[in-house]
Nucleic acid binder design. Structure first.
Lengths: 317, 317
DNA sequence: TGGGTTGATGAGTAATTGCCCACGAGCAAA
DNA sequence: TTTGCTCGTGGGCAATTACTCATCAACCCA
């Protein structure tokens, strides 16, 4: 055979080896024999063919596009976890698909035999996800709520998800016996000093994985709808740059928590460490774009479960 | 989570696993961890994805030797289209490689935005090629079968390729509601007079591109195997100089249709014009040499997709 | 001419993958 | 309800593949 040093000939051989390996399905030994080279050389040619992208692999399934988007999101924002579900073209109902996917992910964590601490935020999407969970026995785990369970009117807050979760999952649950918003920063300090609350706070800080909804701001956002904030307060917040909220913590388009705002009165557990644990946001939709984008940019979350359309939007900026 | 036993969900998982393995390049262990299943299950999903043809591998590199052969073939026989794929040295299976290449060519035509008419012949190689096609929506095109879809025993002929094609490609399909061989020339005239058949005949004559398999003659050839012809008839044909058949039309070593033969009874659409359209033959193998060579010499086809070994053989005469 | 650089090679070894087996859940028929 | 039957599952093992290392030939430039 001709000199092997020329690049062209080598690529040619690589193509041939790659063809035999991937298309014809032969083993590297057979290729080596067929091309009269050593098995190691055959292996090198095959991997060269891959490295030079001579081999194109295509997956014919609707999920392929979702997986590509998920991978792109993960790279762009340095995420630990990224999942994209197909968009429902006619979908007005925003939780179709994503709820199942989120439930599947929660279930994966629940199935672990080693004991872990799971923190749960709030939100309608998260609620829909938790409602998809099958009954399970997970006595080894502990589940802690990041947000208070007392609504602005004193009743139990409906979208406090931990109660829904307790219905399906047999595990130790730790709700937050607090309002969502305190009347002042001082009151928050007092409440957080209580022994019962302290232990929940500490537990939350140790969470191995956290699932949170992402709320958009505006008079139609959950904070207003559920009566935690009045319209004027909300409009002020938006004017001062607020873009979204997670567990009541309000941040701007870059994901920076707002300073002189109601953040001082939020009674929620601080969002667990994104260095040491997974904090997975569950959200989709055009309305929530600024909120999701901000959370990702500011690394308030290091995992995302969303849909195709939202993923594309997030990647286009 | 939903039932894991449903086929759809399993294929979804297979697609995921296959994507992670082939596109993202993860190991099966990583896939297993990501999907919370055992490594063995991950391996099964990956091989399921392969078995279900969700994974398509294609080699994008013009191997110099193949290109030269293709060019030489094109010149020698005045072809519009010529493609040569590497030979599998140990390959007994005759369709490996050529099927992918043929599928790629068919796909190129299907991707055209302007509406065209694609005619399809018959044969095992062509069938294998069509099976490689990814699902596509091509409502602008029309696909017409050149051969009848009723076998000698009255059943649907298995190697009538248009049905396989209809599975993958969303387009208007026109099968031929006829047997492959009529009992006499007179019967053929009668059948071809039917309105339904007439329109298919006319459509076939307008085809922009035609893909046909090339069958060798002999008692092991497809015409005998599939029961269209008896052994004695076949031996007579061979004695009278028959070298190959395309869509049932039998020709000699020079590519001239045999006169006083069963050609008068073939119900197939005449092979579309080689002046105005592309007629691409797909075949390889020593056994088929005489058939391929004749088709090329007689210009029954003006395009060929074959393999290295066959190409060399064709050039050596 | 000689030293440094690049890149291919083969051997050995670790990692990964494919396959077989026995087990158990789910399901349909008896 | 019980009895088979099928199918998915995980464990274990052998086959296959990927990686590392030391060596060597070719090439480049002073």
């Amino acid at each position: 055979m001709a000199k092997r040093s020329d690049t062209q000939g080598r690529l040619d051989d690589a193509a041939r080896a790659g063809w035999l390996y991937y298309v014809a399905g032969r083993t590297q030994d057979e290729i080596a024999a067929a091309m009269s080279i050593s098995r190691q050389s055959a292996q090198r040619l095959v991997s060269l063919a891959v490295a030079e992208r001579l081999i194109k692999v295509r997956l014919d399934h609707p999920i392929a596009a979702c997986l590509e988007l998920a991978e792109a999101l993960r790279k762009k924002y340095g995420l630990r976890h990224s999942e994209v579900v197909p968009s429902d073209p006619a979908g007005v109902s925003s939780t179709v698909g994503i709820a199942e996917a989120a439930a599947a992910e929660i279930e994966r964590w629940l199935k672990r035999p080693d004991p872990i601490i799971i923190a749960i935020g709030t939100g309608r999407t998260l609620k829909a996800a938790v409602d998809q969970l099958p009954p399970m026995e997970c006595l080894q785990h502990r589940i802690v709520s990041l947000t208070g369970n007392i609504g602005p009117d004193g009743s139990a807050a409906y979208y406090n998800v931990i109660f829904s979760m307790a219905d399906a999952i047999k595990a130790r649950h730790f709700p937050m016996p607090l309002p969502v918003l305190c009347s002042s920063a001082a009151e928050r300090e007092t409440l957080h000093g209580q022994a019962l609350v302290r232990s929940t706070l500490e537990l939350g800080a140790q969470a191995d994985v956290t699932f949170v909804g992402i709320g958009e701001l505006g008079v139609d956002g959950p904070l207003c709808i559920d009566g935690f904030l009045g319209k004027e307060e909300m409009l002020d917040l938006v004017k001062s740059g607020a873009a979204g909220e997670i567990c009541g913590w309000i941040y701007d388009r870059e994901g920076q928590l707002l300073g002189n705002s109601i953040n001082d009165r939020v009674a929620s557990v601080p969002i667990p460490s994104r260095e040491k644990s997974s904090v997975i946001g569950i959200a989709l939709g055009r309305k929530k774009f600024a909120a999701i984008s901000g959370a990702l940019k500011g690394k308030i979350i290091n995992g995302i479960i969303t849909d195709e359309a939202t993923a594309e939007q997030l990647l286009s900026v």
